[in-house]
Structures are given as structure tokens and as C-alpha cells.
Design a protein around this nucleic acid. Structure first.
Lengths: 342, 342
DNA sequence: ATTTGTTAAGAAAACGCTTACAAATATCAT
DNA sequence: ATGATATTTGTAAGCGTTTTCTTAACAAAT
């Protein structure tokens, strides 16, 4: 049986009240002598407060819930780490739900978190969440009254607190850089086109092309899944289409392209230039270093938690906040510089 | 204000008891007519049970705590995913603490989890946890009475429920394979030597050498950190020592070696053979595919949770269980086959 | 001796829920 | 009608805390 405050009180002969007061450092003039006795017995008995009881009473758990689609995807594992760091800084702990991109679990975790009385929720939805479910989830959260922040992937047709990185800019930056280096036949290896994330990056790609008067060619776009499995198919297409550069919508897919290129004896960057997206740790470790679009992951975590705790701490209505962070290009060695000379 | 069972009861005119009974599907012959009314009002009001209250009363939270050192290390992010999957299968959710390898946080999270009344704890300790703290943590857990399982990294001088993969075997398999392919000057790029994990893999390396009558050479061993940062230093040494193959004690460090090799124009596997450890997803994506030691991550998660839930469910004393899983060699393309001919 | 003030410590309610038990009502045989 | 039994619903205790409100004790002031 776990030792309770009652046990401590009994053992040292003080009342529950006094023990509680002392243990919580309330300035309720318990004389130092009594204080010490209480502190010592609690320590000696290995007393630990029951957070369920406290939470029940105070209606605060200091717990945040995090829903992410796939923790074995480095972008998300780094993201969850950054949320965790930001949360701990403010005295919150994380309950964490990995949906493995099975979208029905988004809802399950949301319910679980609400049931556990978390003080706030950070959610990045699953890749293939149908719009209907997306809205259902958002409405559930709204109705539950638990503050929440949507991260990275925005829900369609629903306005809520949100932290994103400007994906249009990201796609644009990547593509423009390739164009600047002399490329004009540029493949685009996208994420699931059901995600606004992918669509926006594609939009940025188109914008950059348009700006340089390069016609958009549908057949240079290949849809992937933000993971591995489609690189082979993609590479075949890109070879057929004689692209000289590929904009991959995430780093993992870029690494897949690396492998395929190697298989075909295609040299990066000499024969083929590649730009990734995310700037995960591995970009530096791989050879040649992957030029990519950096997402400020730490900032995403920090901002999400900031908005969330702000929501939690202020009783008045807070206006919906949408924080859009800016991506930036990180140049390494996977793009052939100044192709064809200036 | 959140809607409680009381609110539901009031709204539909039944007692709290009846509502509770129906909502929990107890077979307490509430007539179907009443049942439906209750179910409908609860649904309509968006009632969600307060798990704090339930936990307080039942002394079960269906929550498991997980402490891991670094979620941005793929081995651990995959591990945490596997624990999560195994937990969910049995109706448990995960609270999750990432220590970022700051070892004082191991203890903090342990306390937090106990305070939150988790039903069980899975812990992989931080890389540089001093023995003193290690034992303190273990004793704390023991005293708390919360069932726990130690994963992967074993505490020194403490016997507890544990799931590991046989690291000696792993080191042996990697090294023997290199020897079989004709290598005899084999570098060993280790993890932090303060971890038994690293020491055991090194031991396996030595065993394989001894078996083939190759003298162990201290200068072929370079200590790393299971992450990146030491590859450059390591590579310099390995080149000086004219090794033809390197056994890296994890995959991330192997990728670092890939990069360094490329910098020096050294071809893998033609000029240098590399074996990794962990078999993270990336091994397949990288080129050349990394030959490595597979750790059965899914099994680790499954076994940990199995042992844990077994501990939770059985009231009698359960004998300490140490589950040692077997690693296996996964051959890809980073080792030159049959060097020097047969 | 009574009042007032000060200090120390305890009693009790409440948080939302489950569940053992009690009560009320309906059903039926006598 | 009487009691017995089955069916349905309600009462209340208790889980471990925090916190408001009392009480108790005693010294100082009138």
C-alpha cells in the first residue's frame, strides 16, 4: 500500500492539514520545529503526493497531451522532443500518443487525453485523415473545453490555434535555389497530396517556376508518402523525364532518391541535384550533405506550448492565434552549383 | 465546466448509480428502456468520464510510464513506438519522458510517474548515469512498489526485471562476419564505454577476434557517443591504423563513417567495409545499404510490456524475469564480400 | 476575572466516480 | 389481502488531497 499523507500525519502526530501545509511550502506559520519533524517523517516514509487526488481537487493536472502521426519519422520524433522540452520548461509533463498514421487513433487519443484531464493538447493529425473526421475531431476538442493547438498540418475548414511553418515559402525557396543554379527541368517528389502540407509545398514549387517563366509540367510531379517505398517508381519517372534536379518534399524521401541514384550509377550532385525538406539531423551525416529546407522544429515546440499555456493560464477569452514560422534554405552539397556556368 | 456523471443523472432523471452502471456496461439489469435514455443523454451532453476520479477510486490508471534517453535517436524513437504499440494492445496508454540524456531527469521522471499513479514503468537509463544515481533510482522504484522493467541498458549491481538484447552476441556476429569476409584489421567504433551496452559489444568483438587468433589491438578501438560528433576523429585514427573494416556500435555512427569515407574518397565497400548496429529504418535507404546487427525492437517493446502487465495483474510475488533477446546479422552491401578471395 | 489577541493545529467539505448495500416498487403465489 | 420474490433505483461511503473555517491554548491587556 502506498503511503498517504494520512500515514505521515499519524506517524508524526500532526494533523493532515499541517502536513499538507508544510509539504506544499505554504506560508502558514507552522513553527520550524514542527516543520522539520513533518518534513523528516515524510522523507523517511518515502511519501509521494498522489497527483490524481490533487488533480481531482484542483482541476489542474500539469499534464499536456501530444498526438503525433509517426514517431519513427524523424521529423516527428524531433518535434515531440521539442514539445517535451518546451513543456518541461513550464512545469508540464507530456502524455504522448503515436497514431502510427492510423487515423482513427487521432480521435481515440483525443478522448483519452480529455478523460485524463490534461490541461492542454497539441495535435498533428494523421496523414490520411478524411475531412469529415478532421472536423469531428476539432469539434470534439472545442466542445470538451480543453485548450488545444494544431501543429504543422492544418485542419481543412476549421479555424483554431495553430503553429505551422510556411510551406509555400519552403517549396518556393527550394525550387528557386535549383533554378538559380541553372536547372529548369526539376522534378517534384511530393508527400501525400491529401495533406495541405504537400499541396502548399507544391504550390511554392509552381510559384518559383512561374517566376522564372518555366512552364509547369504535370509529369514532373510524383506523389510519395513522406516515408519510403515510392522512390523507385519516382526515380524511373524522373529518369524518363530527363530531370536534372529533384525537389523532395522531405529528407527521408531525398535519401531514398540518393539510394536509387546510386543504383543507377547516377552521381549526386554531378548528374543529379537534390533538395530535401525538414533538415533532420541526418542531413549532415549523409554524403553528400543534403541541401534542404530547414524547419525550425524547436521553435514549433516552443510556440505551441507557449500558446497552449497562455490559453490555460488566462481565464478570459483569448483570440485565436495562428503562428506561421518561416522556413529557410540550408545549403550543403547535394546541388550542383551554377550548372552550365554563368 | 466539464459535464459530470451527476449532470447526466440530473438531466435524465436517473440516479448517479444507474448512469454509472449503464455507462460501464455492468450487467446490472437496468431495463433496456432506461438504458437507452441514459446512453442518449450522456452522448448528447458529450459526457466523458474523469479518469482521475476513477483512478483514485480503483487504484488503477491504465497508464504506463516510459523513460528514454533521447527520442531524436532513431533507436529510441522506434523503441518508444514499439512500447506504445504493445501497451495500447493491452489497453494501456503511455506517459513519456525524454531525458535528453541529462541523467538527473531519470529520477525526476520516475518520481513524476509514481506521483501520477502509473500502473507500471519502462525505463532505459541515460547514457552517463553514475552508478550511485542508478542504484538510487532502482531503490526508489523498488520502494514505491510500482512494477517496472529495465530495458536495454542494465543497471550495475542491481537485479530487476529486464529486457535486453545480447550485446556480446551482437558484437561477435558483426566481427565474425567481417573476419569471414577476409578482414583482419578491423576497427571498433564504440558507444560510451561507461555503458555496459558498449562494453558488451566490445567484448563480442574481442571474442570473435580471439576465436580466429587475431590479436586484439587497443589502438583500433575508438570511443564514440552513439550519436554524431566523433566520426572525424575516429576516421583519422582508422586510416592511420590502416584498417580495412570498421564495426560501428550503432548505425548513426556508421553513417558518420560513410560521410567521412566519402570526404576522403574512400569507397564503401571497395576500400572500406562497414558494419553497423541497430538496423534502424535508414539502413535500407542509405547507399550502399548498411550491413548491420538487427535488434528486435518490436519484440523488446512487446516483452517489456508483457512482463510489466503480468506484474501488474498478478498479486502474488512474481520471480524476477530477465529476458534476453537475440540479435541477428542483416547483410546488405557495405561489406566487401570475400576479400582477397578464398 | 474577563476580554482580547496571537499562535498552533485540527475538522470537515469538496473534487467525480464506483460499488456495496438499502429501499422502493412491481409481480406473483397463496 | 398477505407475504415472498424479483426487479429497478437510490444512498452513502470512500479514494487522497487541499483549503476554509473552527477550535484550543495560552499570554497580555483591561
Amino acid at each position: 500500500m502506498r503511503v498517504t499523507i494520512k500515514d505521515v500525519a499519524k506517524k508524526c502526530g500532526f494533523s493532515i492539514t499541517s502536513v499538507s501545509l508544510v509539504l506544499n511550502n505554504k506560508e502558514n506559520k507552522i513553527p520550524e520545529s514542527s516543520r522539520q519533524i513533518i518534513l523528516d517523517t515524510a522523507e523517511e516514509m518515502g511519501y509521494r503526493p498522489n497527483r490524481l487526488a490533487v488533480g481531482l481537487l484542483k482541476k489542474k493536472t500539469k499534464l499536456l497531451g501530444l498526438v503525433i502521426p509517426d514517431n519513427s519519422n524523424m521529423f516527428f520524433s524531433e518535434l515531440s522532443k521539442s514539445v517535451e522540452v518546451a513543456a518541461r520548461k513550464r512545469g508540464y509533463s507530456l502524455i504522448y500518443g503515436n497514431t502510427s498514421d492510423v487515423y482513427s487513433r487521432d480521435y481515440e487519443y483525443l478522448k483519452l487525453f480529455v478523460d485524463h484531464q490534461v490541461d492542454g493538447i497539441v495535435i498533428t493529425k494523421s496523414s490520411h485523415l478524411p475531412e469529415k473526421d478532421d472536423i469531428r475531431n476539432m469539434e470534439f476538442l472545442e466542445k470538451s473545453g480543453v485548450p488545444f493547438v494544431v501543429v504543422d498540418r492544418q485542419p481543412k475548414g476549421f479555424k483554431s490555434n495553430m503553429v505551422t511553418v510556411n510551406n509555400v515559402t519552403g517549396g518556393y525557396l527550394a525550387t528557386r535555389y535549383l533554378i538559380e543554379q541553372g536547372h529548369s527541368r526539376i522534378g517534384c517528389f511530393t508527400g501525400p497530396l491529401g495533406l495541405t502540407t504537400s499541396q502548399q509545398r507544391l504550390e511554392g514549387y509552381k510559384n518559383a517556376l512561374a517566376e522564372s517563366n518555366i512552364d509547369f509540367d504535370e509529369s514532373l510531379v510524383v506523389e510519395g508518402n513522406f516515408s519510403s517505398g515510392f522512390e523507385s517508381k519516382a526515380m524511373t519517372r524522373f529518369i524518363d523525364e530527363k530531370v536534372t534536379a529533384i525537389f523532395c518534399q522531405n529528407d527521408i524521401m531525398a535519401f531514398g532518391i540518393y539510394r536509387e541514384a546510386n543504383k543507377f550509377g547516377i552521381k549526386i550532385p554531378a548528374d543529379l541535384s537534390v533538395v530535401g525538406y525538414d533538415n533532420i539531423n541526418l542531413c549532415d551525416i549523409v554524403y553528400p550533405g543534403l541541401t534542404t529546407i530547414h524547419q525550425p522544429i524547436d521553435q514549433i515546440g516552443e510556440e505551441s506550448v507557449r500558446i497552449l499555456t497562455n490559453l490555460i493560464d488566462t481565464s478570459e477569452e483569448v483570440p485565436v492565434e495562428v503562428k506561421e514560422l518561416e522556413p529557410k534554405l540550408v545549403v550543403r552539397s547535394s546541388v550542383l552549383i551554377n550548372r552550365g556556368g554563368k
